[in-house]
Each structure stands twice: as C-alpha cells, then as structure tokens.
C-alpha cells in the first residue's frame, strides 16, 4: 500500500476523529498531520494481514490519547476571541454543536463515537479500542442517548 493512497483516502476521516477529540480546528490539523507522520514511519512495519483501516485508526486514536502530554502547552496559547469566531462562523451550527458535545465526552467515548459516526463496524471499533464488541455496543448506545439529550436541550431538532 502506498503512503499517498492512504493519505488521500484517510485524511478527512482522521481529521474528523481528531476534531471530535479536541474540537479545535488548528489543533486537529496538527494532530492529523502527526498521525500521518507516524503512519509514514510505521508503514514498513505494517503487515498485510491486518486491516489497513484498523491500523490507521489505531495510530490516530493513540496519537489523540497521547495529546495529554502536550495539552498543557497548547492550553496556554489561547486564540483571541475574535479570531475564533471568524474561524467557526462558516460551519453549520449543528455540525459545530455536534463536535462540541463530542469533545466534552470522556476520552475513550470520544474515540468510540467518532469511529461509529464514521460508519466503522462495531467489531472493528472493538479491535481498535481493545474492548469487547458487546461493551462497545453498550457504550455507543449510551453515548448516542447522551448526544440526543443534549441536542434536545439545545433546541436542535
């Protein structure tokens, strides 16, 4: 598998995963780029018997989890309010709200729901995260309930 092909196919998906995790456009871009740097580094170790999608999503979600190491550094550099508004203005409010809600979940739930919304099979999500399929199913159900609740409260129908 060529790096360029993986990059074309997965960029948007990986970006969305990172965006759901941090809900910050610039930071998500950085995280997505970092992911592909790791993908590029690790590509020689990729064994073909493994599923490439599982492999890429594992790298991406692990990189997000590692984010905790860098968080402190980023938190201090807050964007000026005005700039932030400009940045998000163009995005549909509902999309924005969805990403905001997801980024407020706990870390593992963020990863699980992002993968689910990306239409990844639950058995694959289980392999990515390292939990049983039954467990993933239960978690997804709960997270979706939570999201629906938040959308209701906020008046989005």
């Amino acid at each position: 598998m060529k790096f360029e092909d993986i990059y074309q196919e997965y960029w948007q998906k990986i970006f969305r995963l990172c965006m759901g995790y941090v809900n910050d456009y610039a930071l998500a871009q950085d995280l997505a780029q970092e992911t592909f740097i790791i993908v590029w580094q690790q590509l020689p170790n990729f064994r073909n018997e493994a599923n490439i999608s599982t492999w890429v999503f594992r790298i991406a979600s692990n990189n997000c989890l590692r984010q905790i190491e860098k968080q402190k550094r980023f938190q201090k550099v807050e964007m000026p309010q005005q700039l932030m508004e400009e940045n998000t203005e163009s995005i549909e409010p509902k999309i924005q709200f969805l990403y905001k809600c997801i980024s407020e979940l706990n870390e593992i739930d963020r990863i699980i729901i992002s993968l689910e919304l990306e239409n990844i099979k639950q058995s694959e999500i289980a392999t990515i995260v390292g939990l049983s399929e039954a467990n993933i199913r239960v978690k997804i159900h709960r997270i979706k309930e939570k999201l629906t609740q938040k959308f209701k409260e906020n008046g989005h129908k």
């Binding site: 960029w11 948007q12 970006f15 969305r16 965006m19 759901g20 456009y25 998500a28 871009q29 997505a32 995005i91 549909e92 509902k94 999309i95 969805l98 990403y99 992002s114 689910e116 919304l117 990306e118 239409n119 979706k144 999201l147 629906t148 959308f151 209701k152 989005h156 129908k157």
Partner: peptide, 17 residues
C-alpha cells in the same frame, strides 16, 4: 433527533487537506 443524522452531520465537517 434521529441518531442516523449524527453521522451525516459528522461527515459534514470538511477540512483542508
């Protein structure tokens, strides 16, 4: 809100590549 819509909304987020 229908939960299948979440997936559509989710994919509505596009990023510069």
């Amino acid at each position: 809100m229908d939960t299948s819509n979440f997936s559509e909304l989710w994919k509505g987020q596009k990023a510069e590549q």
